[in-house]
Structures are given as C-alpha cells and as structure tokens.
Simulated scan of single mutants.
Amino acid sequence: MISDLEIKMLPHQTQYLFKLIGFLDGYTLLKEFGGQDIYIPQNPNRSKLIKFISSQSLTQLSNIYGGTYISVPTTKKIDTCARNNLVINDLKNGYSRAIIAKKFNLSVRQVTNIKRKYFSYI
C-alpha cells in the first residue's frame, strides 16, 4: 500500500481524485482508463464506470464533473512510489543495494538514488 507521504508526492490531479473518491476506486479508475479522457455523465446510472467503481464514488464524480470529460492520469507514478517503498523497506531490513537492484531490475545507482531521496523524508 502507498503511504500518506507518498500520496503527497503524486501529481495534484491524482491526489484530488483520491481525496474525492478514495484510494481504491481512484486507483481502479486510473488502472482501467489511465491516459484517456473519459466522459462523466450527469446521471451516474447511465455510466459504464459503474462496472469499475462504487456507485457512491461515481455519484461524487457526477456531482462535480457531470457532463464533462476528465483526463485520467496513468498509474506510473503510483506504481513507482509503491516500488520505491518496497526498496526502502528492503534497505531498512539490511539487504545490500546489489541484491535489491537485482530483485527490482534496477541499477545499483538507482537504488542509491531512491535511498537518498526517501531517507531525507524519514
């Protein structure tokens, strides 16, 4: 799971979406429609989005964005933050940078960069 600190590091549009409809529905929306413009109907009962997110979340979106298109960001930043969190946990557990780099298919330098970036927040 992604921490509050990491959510603050995400793009503002993604943060707002998570605040509006919650992390789970927000992430599902990003995973299904990331990189696309989607139409948010004024009447939530007329939307194909009900197959992917809760009716409560869809109602929230319709109340704010009903009748318009929204650009849905991709999950790349979220996935990177989650991976970086796993890297930091492995570093805290004493694994070497070389082992971590191999585990996550990264370079040792990239693991060092992640360590430098995240340990400044810890």
Rank of each mutant, 00 (worst) to 15 (best):
Pro73Val: 01
Thr59Asn: 13
Lys51Gly: 07
Arg116Asp: 13
Ser62Arg: 05
Gln56Pro: 04
Thr75Asp: 02
Ser62Phe: 09
Pro11Ser: 09
Ile78Cys: 01
Lys48Arg: 12
Val108Met: 03
Lys92Thr: 06
Asn45Arg: 12
Ile88Ala: 01
Leu30Val: 00
His12Lys: 15
Pro44Val: 08
Lys76Ala: 09
Ile64Asn: 04
Pro41Cys: 13
Gln42Thr: 13
Lys48Pro: 06
Lys51Cys: 13
Ile99Cys: 05
Leu49Met: 13
Ser96Arg: 05
Pro73Lys: 07
Arg83Leu: 11
Ser57Cys: 11
Ala98Cys: 05
Leu58Met: 14
Val87Asn: 04
Tyr39Thr: 09
Ile78Pro: 01
Ile21Cys: 05
Gly34Thr: 10
Asp90Trp: 00
Tyr65Ala: 09
Ala82Asn: 07
Asn84Trp: 01
Leu29Val: 04
Asn43Thr: 11
Phe33Asp: 05
Lys103Arg: 15
Leu91Asp: 01
Asp79Met: 09
Asn84Met: 00
Ser62His: 07
Arg109Asn: 09
Gly26Lys: 00
Ile78Gln: 05
Asp90Ile: 02
Gln56Leu: 14
Tyr118Phe: 15
His12Ser: 14
Asn89Phe: 07
Ile99Glu: 15
Phe52Lys: 09
Tyr95Thr: 01
Tyr95Glu: 11
Thr68Cys: 08
Lys76Asn: 11
Gln110Arg: 15
Gln60Met: 13
Val108Gln: 06
Leu20Val: 03
Ile40Pro: 02
Asn113Asp: 14
Gln56Met: 10
Ser107Val: 08
Arg97Leu: 09
Leu58Thr: 00
Lys102Met: 07
Phe33Cys: 08
Gly66Trp: 06
Thr68Arg: 14
Thr28Asn: 13
Ile70Asn: 02
Lys103Glu: 10
Leu86Glu: 14
Asn45Val: 04
Ala98Thr: 14
Thr59Ile: 13
Gly94Asp: 05
